[in-house]
């Protein structure tokens, strides 16, 4: 018999609830990316708008105050580049 199930029925939580809130953060959605944002630190004014508008909620501030995407999640949509008021973010091909 082929094994297609995630787990035995006895191990499911009551009513198939998920008891580990936020465990979707295990999912590497960065694999979807074909374009990759690149930050020009010279142009960046650290305004945080890229983080505000990131639909992946994956841009956070680093120790120097720059806003950086987490490439484990970044799908490369390009919203950050489009919204950057200083054109400090450019989208390049993944792997280049």
């Amino acid at each position: 018999m082929s094994k297609q199930a995630i787990m035995a029925w006895e191990d499911l939580a009551l009513g198939t609830a998920i008891l580990s809130p936020g465990n979707a953060k295990e999912l590497r959605t960065g694999d979807w990316r074909s374009l990759k944002p690149k930050l020009d630190e010279e142009k960046c004014i650290k305004c945080s708008l890229c983080a505000m508008y990131c639909p992946e909620f994956c841009i956070s501030v680093d120790a120097e105050g720059f806003y950086r995407p987490d490439f484990y999640y970044c799908k490369g949509c390009g919203v950050c580049a489009n919204e950057c008021p200083k054109d400090a973010i450019t989208m390049g091909k993944e792997g280049e």
Binding site: A24, T29, V79
Partner: peptide, 18 residues
């Protein structure tokens, strides 16, 4: 809402919900 959700690239709906 954590990163790792499966919305399409550039989804403004999940952005709004977040």
């Amino acid at each position: 809402i954590t990163s790792g959700h499966r919305a399409c690239q550039g989804c403004a709906e999940v952005l709004a919900m977040g």
